[in-house]
Write a protein that binds this DNA or RNA. Structure first.
Lengths: 334, 334
DNA sequence: GCCGGTCGTCGAAGCGCTTCGACACTTTCA
DNA sequence: TGAAAGTGTCGAAGCGCTTCGACGACCGGC
């Protein structure tokens, strides 16, 4: 059974039908009588048949593989990226597709290669920058693609993401409702803003606009990831702004350090300072105290990205932009 | 150029040679005159030719894709896993292979599927447990595989990993040299030990054996990942053992919390308590204070795993076990 | 000046699958 | 009751590549 590899011809012979009949049973593209179908399926499991992926790809011009392009840049929070990635793999399997992993080492050449060689049918790209070098390439590719994140110029592309501007605004609104009037945003590391990563900037804009709209006093700062740097940022922030009583933290790696720093400075959460985070639920739940947070819905975004790319593969029209509405969960920190 | 897809036949016609000649230029499996080779390569770049992966796989019985099986289990430190994964992708590309990402959702069935369908030529498996359900399957598969980690029964397999027992011992030796006589190991979360994950247990054994060998007083504890749990563990440890002056932390996620906890308890590092970590260098460097550490050489392990799997693909014999020697870097925490 | 060897190239036979057109049978309905 | 319209199945033609055997052309050695 696991000796030599079984071909469709052997299945056909075993079941006493033509090769094409086996193929149609498998693909469902033509009607097959219940009786024949049974016989074929029995033969398939009796012989342990698995269609050869290469042959299938060659004949059908579909590899049933999608590429996941995951640059793994500095300052990105890897566990969050992996949740996206994992969601993409799971969702792809549900559409009977596998996932080829592409990292940044090869640059855009890798994308061109896997697309041109028909190794993949479609692409899902993560960690999109505002001026992403991959975007022009996607435009000239025949293969459909979906971006997780938004570049500056998105005409003709398909993008999915959490609505980070709304997320920033939602946090401000929550703090405002709680009566805080002087608040701060601790965001991504400076390098991430400089690189022009969309989600960091959009959160900051959402924060800033909402601060103005609510008539609050607010400041937005980048936030590095080592304890010492964060501690210094937090200490200076509190020293400079004695009236500050609310913080929004949009940086998974920094969340715990910010809390540690406040602890060390003798500030109680939420007594002295209320904290809202934008991060996955498990990070918020495991913090001490558990944090009021806006969830980064990685699973949902990944699933949606795959769904959209499959629609495009079918030739169905899809919206250019899909923004998921942020959901705020109140926990112990506000 | 990026309109229709270019085939080898078009390249052959453009260069005025036979299809097989183009193939031999590409594969180097027969000698081709310098002149012909030039013409063919020129045509290839002029037409923007990329060989069709499916056709190549079908004809050559090699997909030039390897599977990376990455379960993403609870308690595993994702950034570390991703460094392995990223190293595997980079190394695979160097051998002209791509990487298919398999997660745990499908269980062993996914492995069987990609192997039987010839979607992949070989497999690299990560996060191996002592009694891993995937191991029996690997034994019956025709495709070569390499494990990153060691199962209990490893006969007939190929495994690579850091020598964690030596790493645990190395940390003990270092603390002993520094004059510490009462020390503790803070290890992985309890669930990881229960699952029988090899590296966690082997570190603990290395620690325990070395403690005995050096005539020290030592205790090994599991260590969860939230600040509150860690703080409690650390506080109780210090309360129970007033003479304790050295700690080994083998838990990337907990490292910063342990330091935060010591800070909060008013213990100076390294003045009151010396800390050695087993973690990637960047985690150690970014901690406060920077930690003396044994590096988890993710890049090296990933590269070695790929090298071994390529050797096996060539039919070359490879050692069953490859253990990388731990390297201790002294920083500010001891 | 003829013979065995390389060297460089070609043509053709698959690799295992999908898909198209064809073809027997049934049904259906004027 | 016969033509039209399904149903269910088959055979064969590729899909684009690798690889095998064949075959001139050229080499040196006798």
């Amino acid at each position: 059974m696991s000796g030599r590899t079984v071909t469709i011809a052997e299945v056909a012979r075993h079941a006493g039908v033509a090769v094409s009949t086996v193929s149609y049973v498998l693909s469902g593209k033509r009607t097959i009588s219940a009786d024949t179908r049974r016989r074929v399926l029995d033969s398939i499991s009796a012989l342990g048949y698995h269609p050869n992926a290469g042959a299938r790809a060659l004949a059908s011009k579909r590899s049933n593989v999608i590429a996941l392009v995951l640059p793994l840049r500095a300052g990105m929070h890897v566990p969050v990226l992996m949740r996206f990635a994992s969601a993409v793999v799971t969702a792809a399997r549900r559409f009977d597709h596998d996932v080829l992993l592409l990292t940044a080492d090869e640059g855009t050449e890798g994308i061109r290669r896997v697309a041109a060689s028909a190794l993949v049918d479609a692409l899902v790209l993560m960690d999109v920058e505002l001026h992403d070098r991959r975007v022009p390439l996607l435009r000239e590719l025949a293969e459909p693609s979906v971006l997780i994140g938004f570049p500056a110029e998105r005409a003709g592309l398909t993008c999915v993401d959490l609505d980070f501007a709304a997320a920033g605004a939602r946090c401000v609104a929550h703090l405002s409702e709680r009566g805080h009037t002087e608040i701060a945003l601790l965001g991504a590391p400076a390098v991430v803003y400089e690189r022009g990563t969309g989600f960091a900037r959009r959160t900051r804009e959402g924060f800033t606009d909402a601060v103005a709209a609510h008539g609050l006093d607010g400041v937005a700062l980048p936030c590095e990831e080592t304890f010492d740097e964060i501690h210094e940022t937090v200490a200076r922030l509190l020293a400079d702004r004695p009236g500050l009583s609310g913080m929004v933290v949009h940086n998974e790696a920094a969340v715990n350090h910010v809390l540690g720093s406040l602890r060390q400075l003798g500030r109680r959460v939420p007594g002295d300072v209320a904290v809202v985070a934008i991060c996955p639920d498990d990070v918020a739940e495991r913090a001490s105290p558990p944090l009021t947070s806006v969830l980064i819905p990685a699973e949902e975004v990944g699933r949606e990205a795959v769904r959209l790319v499959m629609e495009k593969l079918r030739g169905a029209p899809v919206p250019e932009a899909t923004l998921l509405t942020p959901q705020l969960t109140v926990r112990a920190s506000t």
